[in-house]
C-alpha cells in the first residue's frame, strides 16, 4: 500500500503529515516521484523546459488538492492523472502542437520488410544516432494526445494496463487499442527513418 521506494515512509503517511501542516513531508513525495514524473511529462510534451514546468505545476496542484486524496488509493496513480492532464493541456497550447508536420511517409504500408537491424537501446547508443531519436520524438508528437500518454506511461514509466486505465479514466480495452495504434505509428516512423 503506497510503500515508499527502498522501504521509505509510505506515501499515505507522508500525505497525512503534509495535511497536518508539515510541508517537508510533501517535499519527500516530490523527491520520490520527480524523476518518473519528468520522464512521463517530457515524453508527452517533448520539450525539457516545458516538462519541468508541467511537473512543477502538477506537484503544486497536487499539494492543494491533497485533501481530496482518498487514503488507500495509490498516490502515484492519483498524481499521474493530474500530471498527464497538465502535460496534455500544455502540449495543446504549445507551438509544438501546431508546427509539427505529420509526414505521410510514416504511414507508408509499402515499405518492404526490413532486414535485421539493431536499434539503439540506450541513451549512449542513441547519442550516436540523434536523428533517430528526433524522428521517434516527431512520431510521438504526431500521435493524438491520449495515445501519446498511453505509450509514454507504458513504455517509459512501465505502468501496467490497469494502472494506465485508472490514470486516464478509460477501460483496459481502450488502453490496449491506443497502445496498439501508437506502437504501429512509431514502428512505421522507425522504418521510414531507416529507409529515408
Amino acid at each position: 500500500m503506497n510503500e515508499g521506494e527502498n522501504g521509505g515512509v509510505p506515501d499515505d503517511a507522508l500525505i497525512r503529515t503534509t495535511l497536518a501542516g508539515d510541508d517537508g513531508a510533501f517535499g519527500q513525495l516530490v523527491d520520490r516521484y520527480k524523476g518518473r514524473a519528468f520522464a512521463v511529462a517530457v515524453g508527452i510534451v517533448g520539450d525539457g523546459d516545458d516538462a519541468l514546468d508541467v511537473v512543477q505545476d502538477s506537484f503544486i496542484k497536487a499539494y492543494y488538492k491533497l485533501k481530496e486524496f482518498r487514503f488507500g488509493a495509490n498516490f502515484y496513480t492519483w498524481f499521474y492523472r493530474l500530471l498527464v492532464n497538465q502535460a496534455i493541456d500544455r502540449w495543446r497550447k504549445s507551438a509544438r502542437s501546431a508546427e509539427v508536420p505529420f509526414d505521410e511517409k510514416w504511414l507508408s504500408e509499402e515499405a518492404s520488410p526490413p532486414d535485421a537491424f539493431a536499434y539503439p537501446r540506450t541513451p549512449e547508443d542513441l547519442v550516436r544516432d540523434r536523428e533517430l531519436g528526433d524522428a521517434l520524438q516527431r512520431a510521438v508528437d504526431a500521435l493524438p494526445a491520449y495515445h501519446r500518454a498511453v505509450i509514454v506511461l507504458r513504455e517509459v514509466d512501465g505502468m501496467a494496463y490497469d494502472e494506465i486505465a485508472k490514470v486516464l479514466g478509460c477501460s483496459v480495452g481502450t488502453v490496449m487499442s491506443r497502445l496498439h495504434y501508437a506502437r504501429g505509428k512509431l514502428k512505421e516512423a522507425l522504418k521510414a527513418h531507416r529507409e529515408g
Binding site: 515524453g43 540506450t122 542513441l126 531519436g133 521517434l136 510521438v140 517509459v156 506502437r183 514502428k187 522507425l190
Partner: peptide, 20 residues
Amino acid sequence: AISATGPLLRAVTGIRANEK
C-alpha cells in the same frame, strides 16, 4: 521494431532527463 519502441523512448527520455 515493436520491441525497440520502448527502449528507444526510454533512451530519448533519458537523454532529455540528463540534460535537465
